[in-house]
Design a binder for these strands. Structure first.
Length: 355
DNA sequence: TACTCGTGGTC
DNA sequence: TGACCAAGAGT
């Protein structure tokens, strides 16, 4: 608490008392760096100054605002919770961490953060920073991603907590983790706790905290068909399956489990997800594959562009949109960057020469 | 409990 | 380049 100075890590919501804006900032910051979340917070605050504004917004508009931030279930739950608070709670946010916990998208961390920041409820937060600080300081190698670990560190967090200054304490310990007790290159030389830190004494700083589970990654190969009709519209669909990028838009795609082979071979190998026949799609060009690293999978994306007749029969879930309308839909980063690159490409070759 | 959900930064 | 991590939560 002596170490803490709010100005060292300035954030627009630090002095905020409006539960709506605190909640908004906390949802955005889940598993997200402050620097990355900042612009999104400003965007949402401007577009939706109150919970009622957010509740009244169309789903696709909110998803578009969230585009690029990842973990899109946060956006869906954000809207669900906003409509709950606006509709059934008269616009008043729940007044305790226990009640906040019932909102979709609000878990133990977020409930504690909102309750302590907005209402001075004496409840400690337990986020990645706190786990790291406590495990190092106490020299505790109990894995943090187990039930036993959560129980242990919840107890330690309560011991370290200052119930007289809940908001200040919670912000202080998270800043301390971000600025001093960092995952890499921890600043032990300037740490006010170094003399009594068990990890420091035993040279275990970078062995803690311990995680039990290791990450498994799989590689998936997506082949997107960028189908354009005679009027320049594109065929898109909204992802609805329980998979990555749910509710975001995409070009029709087929997925295969191996590296690139010839396009027509691929097509015959897997066409059940494509809403038209091979002979109605006139392939014009295939782009170099694009790679995107997600937490649990590596996506290799191939984009195949071509012409198709707008007269074809389409199953439900597909729609034609003009190039301009593409800009209003939320796409996964891989597709959004493809569209952006393609737009630049087209501009270069279609703009009239300048003097 | 185990698994999954994105994107970007750092080393 | 690959591993790890970020103001975690839902299923």
């Amino acid at each position: 608490m002596n170490w803490y100075e709010p100005d060292r890590r300035p954030m627009p919501w630090k002095a905020e008392r409006d539960p709506y804006l605190i909640w908004l900032s906390e949802i955005i910051l889940q598993q997200t760096r402050v620097e990355q979340g900042l612009a999104y917070f400003e965007k949402f605050r401007t577009a939706y100054p109150t919970v009622h504004d957010l509740a009244a917004a169309p789903d696709t508009e909110v998803m578009k605002h969230w585009e690029g931030l990842g973990y899109y279930s946060r956006a869906r739950n954000l809207l669900k919770a906003a409509r709950l608070v606006s509709g059934e709670m008269g616009g008043i946010f729940p007044q305790s961490s226990a009640e906040l916990l019932k909102l979709p998208g609000v878990g133990p961390y977020t409930a504690a953060a909102i309750a302590s920041f907005a209402y001075d409820e004496p409840i400690p937060v337990l986020d990645g920073n706190v786990y790291r600080i406590l495990s190092r300081y106490a020299g505790q190698a109990t894995p943090i991603d187990t039930t036993a670990g959560k129980k242990l560190f919840t107890a330690l967090a309560a011991l370290a907590f200052d119930p007289e200054q809940p908001a200040r304490y919670n912000q202080a310990i998270m800043d301390f983790g971000a600025l001093v007790c960092k995952p890499k290159r921890a600043d032990c030389a300037n740490c006010p706790l170094s003399l009594s830190c068990v990890a420091r004494a035993g040279d275990l700083v970078y062995d803690l905290p311990v995680k039990a589970k290791k990450l498994q990654r799989k590689t998936r190969y997506f082949h997107f068909l960028v189908a354009r009709d005679e009027t320049g519209r594109y065929l898109v669909q909204q992802r609805k399956s329980a998979d990555i990028w749910r509710d975001l838009f995409q070009f029709p795609l087929f997925e295969i489990d191996h590296e690139d082979v010839l396009f027509d071979k691929l097509w015959f190998a897997s066409t059940k997800d494509i809403p038209f026949q091979r002979n109605s799609f006139v392939l014009e060009r295939s782009y170099p594959p694009r790679k995107q690293q997600l937490t649990h999978q590596t996506i290799i994306g191939y984009f195949h562009e071509g012409r198709i007749d707008s007269g074809i029969q389409l199953p439900t879930g597909y729609e034609w949109v003009s190039a301009a309308e593409l800009g209003r839909l939320a796409f996964p980063k891989m597709i959004a960057s493809f569209i952006a690159d393609k737009s630049v490409f087209l501009d270069l070759f279609t703009l009239p020469p300048t003097e």
